[in-house]
Amino acid sequence: MVPLSWYLIFAAALFSIGLYGVLSRKNAVAILMGVELMLNAVNVNLLAFWRYLTFDKMAGQVFAVIVFAVAASEVAVGLALVISVYRRRQSIVADEINLLKY
């Protein structure tokens, strides 16, 4: 069987890529995609831990299901807000959404 650490390393890499995407991307949709990668990393972690450590309990699986349900609703709301910004500004580049500062 694949050792647990492989999954954890994979999840950590996925999380880091996602975080890098969130911090470096300027396009709002790309930022949301970065957040999705981070949440997927969480799910990989949760399921790996569940499978290897607490196979007899449900908590890990339930947690993972809840995480992707919430992720879906978060993205739905996120895209709605992105659209409402786009309608006002004709742009979804985070750098140009800079009315509120200082």
């Binding site: 999840a11 930022i31 981070m38 969480v42 949760l46 947690f63 996120g78 807000l81 509120l100």
Partner: peptide, 25 residues
């Protein structure tokens, strides 16, 4: 305001959740 709140909120909650997943593990 909604747009900024969402982007920061989604990012920080994902980081927090990553911590929770390790806590569970």
């Amino acid at each position: 305001a909604g747009f900024k709140y969402l982007l920061f909120g989604a990012m920080t909650s994902a980081i927090m959740l990553f911590g929770f997943s390790y806590l569970f593990g």
